[in-house]
Write a protein that binds this DNA or RNA. Structure first.
Lengths: 213, 213
DNA sequence: CAGCGGGGTTAGTGGTCGTTAACCTGGTGG
DNA sequence: CCACCAGGTTAACGACCACTAACCCCGCTG
């Protein structure tokens, strides 16, 4: 474990504090002086590490989107390589996303809150990564719940993301017993949501309109 | 229906456009000139209607928090007055929240995104309204799913709010067939989530730790 | 020991933004 | 006809803020 955290570099410190501050007060609500102060240097010293304030946000958002996607891809590949059932792969995806949501709360917040503050090129990259991540989920979900049309499945995935990403809101008094219990509860909630969506098809006549691909 | 929309007053126009802009670009990302331009007047003309930019945000957030709470109270009272089962009351709460989420997307976004930009007094008021709304749900949820400890139920409610409030994210191509289908899907997702949380108690030994009150 | 470059510092600088001031106008009641 | 007032306008002010410039220090390496 000592190789995992070999004294964080200054860049990493800055990114971590910037993420926290951006999540707390919004991108426009935080000044570079505050970010600098949070890591012990002051103001324009940040420009020795980043070309600008927006570059920090970009790196944060690209980073988390990329890590989510690669993590998801790895889990999907593990399931496909072995003969694992799709339901197990979905379990694994859910677990991975919960880990992110619980361990990187500020990033989860930024991830769907400050995307529009990026330059076009960065924003497109992040959106592309996010879209791939969603489509990864959609494929797995449709294997597990084949009665869901593609559009329905996508809506379900977005909704479950909203559910899993709600962790920031329940952090106030450390309400839940512990991390493991919270993770287990979120897992059950997510699975239940998919089950519920799959259960009855709601209005008949709306489902078969969505062609498979 | 003509009495419902008797030509929107200027104040209402301003609030509506301000909500849209705040939701799109964040409170700090929108200038008063843009808000004014969105309603056909320009810049400081807004100060004939509001004492300042923050007052607009405050009115928006207090408004939606209040409407959510009063709507929830009404639905709970209707269920209690008649001999309705708690499950029906929960259905009604879910339906009401979905209506808000689908009809007032910008406000739903602001509601959990820009709360910290308010003055202390306003923020406390909004938080109080939000807390009462959550507690209303928690009570109903615990009647329907009595095996949930209070803290668990509260976490579930927050998570389901996250789920229902995810509607902004799926709006891109009008993915789902129509409003009714989307609402039905969200309803099934929410109910399924509660069912999933209630299903197996996860780790035994963690549940009975949470005292009822 | 020279030099040099990574990583700081403080002092501007230009631009944006919320807010105020001063002024205008068209309708309305006495 | 006059006073007034709700609801605008433009101009300006002051604060803030991202970013740049100029300078500095110190641990290397040759």
């Amino acid at each position: 474990m000592s190789t995992q955290a070999p004294a964080p570099t200054r860049r990493e410190q800055i990114l971590k504090e910037a993420a926290r501050l951006f999540a707390e007060r919004g991108f426009h609500g935080v000044g570079v002086d505050e970010i600098g102060a949070a890591v012990g240097i002051s103001g324009p010293g940040l420009y020795r590490h980043f070309p600008g304030k927006e570059a920090m946000l970009a790196e944060l958002l690209v980073g988390i989107s990329g890590r989510l996607l690669t993590g998801g891809k790895r889990r999907a590949a593990e399931g496909e390589g072995a003969g694992r059932a799709p339901a197990e792969v979905l379990d694994s995806l859910i677990e991975g996303h919960i880990d992110f949501a619980l361990d990187d709360r500020p990033l989860i917040i930024l991830h769907d809150r400050e995307l529009d503050r990026l330059r076009d090129t960065d924003r497109k990259l992040v959106r592309s990564l996010q879209r791939q991540y969603v489509e990864l989920w959609v494929e797995v979900v449709r294997e597990v719940y084949p009665r869901l049309a593609e559009a329905e499945a996508r809506a379900c995935v977005h909704a479950v993301f909203g559910l899993l990403n709600s962790t920031p809101h329940l952090g106030r008094p450390g309400a839940l017993p512990g991390r493991a219990a919270t993770a287990a509860l979120l897992h059950r909630l997510a699975l239940g949501a998919f089950e519920g969506a799959h259960g009855a098809d709601g209005e008949p006549g709306s489902a078969e309109a969505g062609q498979a691909r």
